Amino acid sequence: MKTVVIIPTYNERENVQWIVSRVRAATPDATVLVVDDNSPDGTGALADELAASDTSVRVLHRAGKEGLGAAYRDGFRWALTAGFDRVVEMDADGSHQPEQLHRLLEASDAGADVVVGSRWVAGGGVENWAAHRRLLSRGGSAYARFALGVPLRDVTGGYRVFTAEALRRIRLDVVQSQGYCFQIDMIWHAVVEGLRVVEVPITFVERERGSSKMTMDIVLEAMLRVTGWAVTSLPSRLRRRRRAAPSLVE
Rank of each mutant, 00 (worst) to 15 (best):
T81D: 14
R225S: 09
E206K: 15
R196D: 06
R242K: 06
S21G: 09
I187S: 02
R86N: 12
G158L: 10
L238A: 11
W129N: 05
V249G: 02
R207C: 07
V192W: 09
V200K: 05
H61F: 13
D54A: 12
Y180M: 10
Q97P: 01
L220N: 06
V87Y: 06
V16G: 05
G124W: 08
Y10P: 03
S247C: 14
Q178R: 13
I187G: 02
G67R: 00
G44M: 12
V4A: 04
L148W: 08
E66K: 00
A244S: 14
T55K: 15
R24N: 03
R196Q: 10
L220G: 00
Q176S: 11
G125S: 08
V161K: 00
I187C: 02
S56P: 01
Q97A: 10
S177T: 09
V87W: 08
Q183V: 10
Q176T: 15
R133H: 15
L136T: 01
V114D: 09
G111Y: 05
V34Q: 03
T43Q: 12
V150Y: 05
P151M: 07
A71C: 03
D74S: 13
S137T: 03
R160T: 14
A107Y: 12
G83A: 08
V249P: 01
A245M: 13
I184T: 07
A130I: 06
A45K: 13
R24S: 03
S236E: 04
V35C: 11
S53P: 01
L104T: 07
D85P: 01
R160A: 14
L238N: 01
L234G: 02
R240D: 15
L195N: 11
D29V: 08
G64M: 10
E106D: 11
F84V: 02
F162W: 15
V57T: 06
V23Q: 03
L172H: 13
V175L: 11
G123W: 05
P235D: 01
R24D: 01
T31F: 14
L105P: 00
R240G: 14
E127A: 13
R243T: 14
R119W: 03
V16L: 05
Q176N: 09
R225W: 14
G158V: 06
Y159W: 10
Y159A: 04
G42V: 11
R240T: 14
G124K: 09
R119Y: 03
S21V: 02
T43S: 15
T3Q: 01
F182A: 04
T215R: 12
R134C: 13
G158I: 10
L195E: 13
S108V: 10
T31K: 04
I7R: 01
H102L: 05
V200H: 07
R243S: 15
L135A: 14
L224A: 09
W120K: 07
I170Y: 05
A47E: 04
G69T: 05
S53C: 10
R209H: 14
R24P: 02
F162K: 00
L248F: 14
A147R: 01
S212E: 00
A107W: 13
R62W: 07
R242P: 04
T203F: 10
R171V: 08
A51F: 12
G69D: 09
A112M: 00
D48N: 07
I218N: 04
V116T: 05
T27A: 14
S211W: 04
